[in-house]
Every structure is written in C-alpha cells, then in structure tokens.
Amino acid sequence: MEQERLIETATRIFAELGYDGASLQMIAEAAGDDIHSVRQVAETKAELYRQVMQRAHTAEDEAMQDAVAHFTPDRQGIKLLADAFLDFFASHPQALALWQHGWMGDAADVTGVDVFYVQPRSTQIADKIRDRVPPDVDPDYLVWSVMWCVYGFLNTGAVHQHGELPHRHTPSSAPRRTDTHSFQAFLHVMIDRMFASSP
C-alpha cells in the first residue's frame, strides 16, 4: 500500500470521526485496500494516528517557519505569528479537527500526541515577550488567548449584532474570507490592547 495515500485517508477519517470513532478496517476500506496492507504501514491504529498527528504538526511547523524566523518580541511579532497561525488552520480544516477531537478527550489512551507538540513553542514565545508586556498581562495567557481565539473562531464563528448565524467550519470547509479578515482585524486590536503602555 502507498503510505502517502494511507496517511491522507487516515487523516480524513480521524478528522471526521475522531480516533475513538475510527478503526483500521474502516480506514483500509476507505483507502481501497485490506487490513493486512494497512498493517505493513502501521501495526496498530495508535501507530497510524501518531503518524497522522506528526504529519499535521510538521505541516504547521513549516507554515509557521517564516513567521517564527522573523519573530520580534513585540506586538508586531505576535501579530505576525497570529496571522500565520490563523492562515494555516483556516486553510487546513482537517488539522484543526484533529486537534479539536483531542481536546474533547478523544485518543486519551494514545500517549505523546498532546500538548507536547504545542507547549515548547508557546512557552518559548511567552518567555521572549515576558519583559515587553505590562506587568498586569500574563504573557503565557496572552499567547494562549491568541490560539484560543483562533480555534474558537474557526470552530464556531460568531453571532454579530445583526443576528447572522456563524459560518460553521468543518473538516472539509474553510471560513468565509470576509469573516476571516474581520476576525484578523479584531485579533490585531486585541494584541495592541495587551501591549498597551509597553514599547
């Protein structure tokens, strides 16, 4: 079996159903192959899931590479990272869905696929801006607030004053461009407020 095709199929199935809701047999059938061929690539569902999550993490790292390389410990640097983060997950709904399942308790028995992918970068960024934000702003919460806002927007959208229902972001769809632009503008304002009275 072609490994790339299997990983792509498994990514789609895990994004739609979660780890707990999928099986190797289901993935094999969706890929048009049999379970024995699947086991040549991954012996267990947990092993296949780790490969899928590692692939998603690598794709995110590559998308963030330029923003991380040009990061400066100030509001512009955080905006650059926030924009790259938003762009990646807005254009990779399956990656967002994979993480969303995990935060809801999916794949609880699979070790090594949780905060360890995210924590090193968030901690590193928070440490770099620690002396650049006002004393009443916790830099760890600032970094995570940006991430939480992006996840929340892409997952549920927002109901505005005129009562429009949010555009639901699913593993196979992306948010409307106008919504993304208005949310991005808000995100920049939020970051500016958090850096108020700082350089």
Rank of each mutant, 00 (worst) to 15 (best):
Ala15Phe: 03
Gln25Val: 07
Leu48Ala: 10
Met53Cys: 07
Ala56Lys: 00
Asp20Ile: 05
Gly18Cys: 08
Ala30Glu: 12
Arg39Ser: 00
Gln54Ser: 09
Glu29Tyr: 13
Asp20Ser: 14
Arg55Asn: 15
Leu24Asp: 09
His57Pro: 00
Ser23Asp: 11
Lys45Cys: 07
Glu47Arg: 11
Gln40Ser: 10
Gly18Glu: 07
Ala46Asn: 11
Ala56Pro: 01
Ala56Leu: 00
Ala31His: 00
Arg39Asp: 00
Gly21Trp: 06
Asp20Gly: 13
Leu24Gln: 14
Ala31Leu: 02
Leu48Phe: 11
Tyr19Leu: 13
Tyr19Lys: 12
Met26Ser: 05
Thr58Phe: 04
Phe14Thr: 07
Gly21Asn: 07
Arg39Pro: 00
Glu47Trp: 03
His57Ser: 13
Val52Arg: 06
His57Thr: 14
Thr44Arg: 06
Arg39Tyr: 01
Leu24Thr: 12
Met53Phe: 11
Val38Trp: 09
Ala22Phe: 02
Ser37Tyr: 08
Val52Asn: 07
His57Glu: 10
Gly18His: 05
Ala28Ile: 13
Phe14Gly: 14
Ser23Ala: 15
Leu17Ala: 14
Gln25Cys: 01
Gln40His: 15
Asp20Phe: 03
Ala28Gln: 12
Gln25Gly: 14
Glu16Tyr: 00
Lys45Thr: 00
Ile27Gln: 02
Gln40Tyr: 15
Glu43His: 14
His36Trp: 05
Met53Tyr: 09
Val41His: 09
Ser37His: 10
Gln54Cys: 02
Tyr49Asp: 08
Phe14His: 13
Arg39Lys: 09
Thr58His: 03
Ala22Gln: 08
Gln25Glu: 09
Ala46Ser: 15
Leu17Phe: 15
Gly21His: 07
Glu29Pro: 04
Val41Trp: 02
Tyr19Ala: 15
Ala46Met: 09
Gly18Tyr: 04
Gly18Met: 07
Leu48Tyr: 11
Ala15Val: 06
Ile35Val: 13
